[in-house]
Amino acid sequence: MSLLERESPGVVMTPDHLRARKLPVVADLGIAVLALLLSAAVVYGLGLGNWVLVIAFGVVLYLAGLYFGASRIEGKRSARNRAWRSLIYAACLLAVLPLASVVWTLVSKGAARLDGDFFGSSMNNIGARDPNGGAYHAIVGTLEQVGLATLMAVPLGVLGAIYLVEYGRGRFALTVRFFVDVMTGIPSIVAGLFVLAFWVLIVSPWFNDGTPRFSGFAASLALTVLMLPTIVRSTEEMLRLVPGPLREGAYALGVPQWKTILKVVLPTALPGIVTGIMLAVARAAGETAPVLLVAGGAAAINMDPFAGNQSSLSLFVYQQAGDASKYAPDRAWTAALTLVALVLLLTIAAKLLARRNRLS
Results as ranks from 00 to 15, higher is better:
L3I: 15
E7A: 14
V11Y: 12
V12D: 11
T14P: 01
A20E: 13
R21K: 12
P24H: 10
A27S: 15
G30M: 01
V33E: 02
V33C: 04
V33D: 00
L34Q: 08
S39M: 06
V42A: 12
G45H: 01
L48G: 11
G49H: 02
N50F: 00
N50Y: 00
L53T: 11
I55M: 09
F57C: 02
V59F: 10
L63I: 07
G65F: 01
G65A: 07
R72K: 11
G75V: 01
G75K: 04
S78W: 06
A79H: 07
N81P: 01
I88D: 08
I88A: 14
Y89M: 11
L93Y: 12
A95M: 15
V103C: 06
G110E: 10
G116L: 06
F119H: 02
N124S: 15
I126R: 06
I126S: 03
A128Y: 15
A128M: 09
R129Y: 14
D130L: 05
D130S: 03
P131R: 03
I139W: 03
L143G: 04
Q145M: 15
G147L: 05
V154K: 14
A161I: 04
Y163L: 03
E166Q: 10
G170Q: 05
G170D: 06
F172L: 11
A173K: 02
T184V: 10
S188D: 13
A191F: 02
V203C: 06
P212Y: 13
S215H: 05
G216K: 02
F217Y: 11
A219V: 12
A222M: 05
L223P: 10
L226N: 10
M227N: 02
T230Y: 10
S234H: 11
L239R: 00
L241H: 01
V242R: 03
P243L: 09
G249S: 13
A250H: 10
V255D: 00
T260Q: 01
I261Q: 03
I261F: 13
L266Y: 00
P267H: 04
P267N: 05
L270T: 13
P271K: 05
T275W: 10
M278Y: 05
M278R: 04
R283Q: 13
G286R: 03
G286H: 08
A289I: 05
G297Q: 01
I301Y: 09
A307C: 08
Q310H: 05
Q310M: 15
S312Q: 00
Q320L: 03
A321W: 15
G322K: 01
D323H: 04
R331T: 05
A336Q: 03
V340F: 07
L342C: 12
L346D: 07
R355Y: 14
N357R: 06
